[in-house]
Nucleic acid binder design. Structure first.
Lengths: 217, 217
DNA sequence: AAACTGCCAACTGTCGACAGTTGACACGTT
DNA sequence: AACGTGTCAACTGTCGACAGTTGGCAGTTT
């Protein structure tokens, strides 16, 4: 998906993976600063590759750079969340439209499987894992077959994960989300691009609202 | 617009500006490789800051990195152009919708001014400068007041400029574009988000087609 | 003559060290 | 006691040098 940038053997590439993991899991708490020498020692590499890794994560929006001060993991204001979801909505609505017109039959089966698994999980009393929500959106993205849109959505979703102070623990919200997903799949199955877009917009609007409420407690 | 990342005093930041300029103006031709030591010497800086600049431009899509081989300025295939315009359409249609509902009166005046200047230029027999087209889209973006969407559009537009093998020299195309712009402004003036989105989609579809034809000669 | 093999130059990846800037603490002043 | 000032440690920005890899060229073999 990304441009041919397989940084995955270089030290910088490995550092990107490790740091991204730590930032997304909250191992490095929002607001805290990333000390170059300290982290470099901890990773057993020199500052050069680490700096490249930090800059890369900054370009993904997972860190913010302040000259002569270093890199910080950003904590978002409500306005940030709203603006971010405007971007996400633009991208994912377009993806939903494209998916409705381009999806293959195996795409459809995969989407239905993810939905079914979510239901099973939910009825078993377990919480709707964020993992399955992510899987749904990524499957839809694959069905849209628009590499640049997919890539951008991936980046936006990462930033959303960073704000997951709002974990989807609210049962009615989970239920509504699963209903949205089901309706989305039906629209895509019918090839109804307009409806797919509309449902996606409503879905993301709901998720955004949920995040905003649990952000302000 | 960008996160607080004012790299504009550091050597790396300056190198980003210089290199971006050179790539966008074609001073560094597509397909050619960027030699780190050579460019570093030419800029009078060391390889460290230059590498950061290269990585940054790569994250913007203006360069592609190949491990152990270096950075290349990408040349696009028709499929790339199509996929890129799918992204651009998603973003700018959303921006048009938002602009229709959020624009202030001064936003409207600015949009009308840009259109008027384009007409004047055209009637004076001069070609429709890409500069004014860019100005229009950026003014619209400002009216949308969605920082993340604006930022992404900025990046996509850069990549489009990189492919400007299709210079807008075709008079009927120029005329159609100006008509699109005018119609877009009317829709935004009326606060008609749906129409703004539709017109924008048609406009970008036209521009994309134009690019594809002049890409294949 | 074509194909294979080994060597070589060029370049990227990485490292350790130096220089400049920032924020904070301690001290002195009013 | 509050405020302004000077100093200092910590950290980022930058540099030059070394190590590892890649692609190409020359030489050899069949």
């Amino acid at each position: 998906m990304t441009p041919p940038t397989p940084l995955h053997l270089s030290l910088a590439g490995q550092a990107v993976d490790v740091l991204r993991e730590q930032v997304l899991t909250g191992e490095i708490t929002p607001g805290s600063r990333v000390n170059e020498v300290e982290v470099a020692q901890k990773l057993g590499i020199s500052r050069g590759p680490l700096r490249e890794a930090i800059r890369h994560l900054a370009s993904e929006g997972l860190l913010t750079l302040v000259p002569h001060r270093g890199a910080f993991v950003p904590d978002a204001s409500p306005d940030d969340v709203r603006a971010l979801f405007e971007l996400r909505t633009a991208l994912e609505c377009a993806a939903a439209e494209l998916a409705a017109s381009r999806r293959t039959d195996v795409d459809l089966v995969r989407l239905q499987e993810v939905c079914a698994e979510s239901r099973r999980n939910y009825k078993a009393g377990q919480p709707f894992p964020y993992r399955l929500d992510l899987a749904f959106h990524q499957t839809l993205l694959h069905a849209a077959r628009s590499p640049y849109i997919s890539e951008q959505v991936r980046l936006v979703q990462q930033r959303v994960v960073l704000l997951r102070s709002a974990l989807a623990d609210d049962p009615p919200h989970q239920h509504a989300s699963m209903d949205d997903h089901d309706e989305l799949v039906r629209a895509i199955a019918d090839g109804d691009a307009a409806k797919a877009s509309t449902v996606m917009r409503r879905h993301l609007s709901r998720v955004c609202a949920q995040m905003l409420t649990s952000l302000t407690h």
